[in-house]
């Protein structure tokens, strides 16, 4: 336990976070780039074409990972909110703010790729499909958190209020998803069908796993980059930030 507590204690130090994330980022960046390159080239060039949709299904290698990460990102944000409310760790506030922005971007990416996929598959750019509609509501929830954060003058209050809102959203997301599913099965028009095979062929599925992993690592990279920018902004008066700005680098903290 003491190891966990000292880790949490260190997490409270923005300077420690900045230093350690500088060490992680190159590796994570290479990992994300490698996984995405591998998965996308495999999926776009080597996976077999779909029997019904032909090549247009290949956008799945971007669409599905973005949708996965956008949902997981909301839970990450709510988790950061819990940490912020319970342990009052400032870095959790930073993670919450950064997670809202990156998550909204991922949700937007999933919506746009879904819309582009809809054109050849359904013949229209927008369909009130259950999953697309849920994604749209998820985007609204993200935008709500961002708007609430911007509305407060004090960052502390903003982060706490956003933490409560994201927790409320966490309780609501499963309910919203189930409601929208049920709503869609009630209203589903007969002419529109998602013509995807019920189970994917392994040759199509394996590249998808790689791109999903790649998107998760990409999410972490983007999150860390946003958090670092936010940490610098919050700590602009601190001496270590001044030294960093003067190009003197970041020395390890004395005493650890």
């Amino acid at each position: 336990m003491s190891g966990v507590w000292s880790f949490l204690h260190k997490l409270g130090s923005p300077r420690w976070f900045y230093r350690i994330s500088s060490q992680w980022l190159p590796w994570l960046g290479v990992l994300a780039g490698g996984l995405l390159l591998w998965g996308v080239v495999w999926g776009l060039a080597f996976a077999p074409a779909d029997a019904i949709q032909g090549n247009s299904f290949r956008i799945i290698y971007i669409h599905v990972p973005a949708a996965f990460v956008s949902l997981a990102g909301y839970y990450m944000m709510a988790g950061a909110g819990v940490v912020s409310l319970v342990w009052k760790i400032k870095l959790a506030d930073v993670a919450l703010r950064a997670g809202a922005g990156v998550g909204a971007a991922m949700t937007f990416c999933a919506l746009v790729t879904g819309s582009i996929w809809g054109k050849p598959t359904w013949g229209t750019w927008w369909v009130w499909d259950a999953r697309i509609t849920s994604m749209l509501v998820l985007l609204f929830l993200y935008l709500g958190v961002l708007a609430l954060y911007e509305a407060f003058e004090s960052r502390e209050t903003a982060a706490k209020a956003c933490a409560v809102l994201s927790l409320v959203g966490t309780v609501n997301i499963p309910i919203i998803y189930k409601s929208v599913d049920w709503w869609y099965s009630l209203h589903q028009p007969a002419t529109i069908k998602l013509t995807r095979a019920p189970s994917m062929h392994p040759d199509m599925f394996h590249p998808l796993i790689v791109t999903i992993l790649g998107f998760y690592v990409l999410y972490v990279v983007l999150l860390l980059l946003r958090m670092r920018a936010e940490v610098l902004e919050r700590e602009e008066k601190a001496r270590w930030v001044e030294e960093l700005a003067q190009g003197r680098g970041l020395a390890p903290e004395s005493g650890g």
Binding site: V137, F140, L141, A147, L148, A151, L165, N172, I176
Partner: peptide
Amino acid sequence: ALTVGLRKGGLLLSLLVLPLYVP
């Protein structure tokens, strides 16, 4: 309750609450 301390709560309130009304 979230927007009670803000001067201009109205429009923000609808952004926060309307998605939660969906079910």
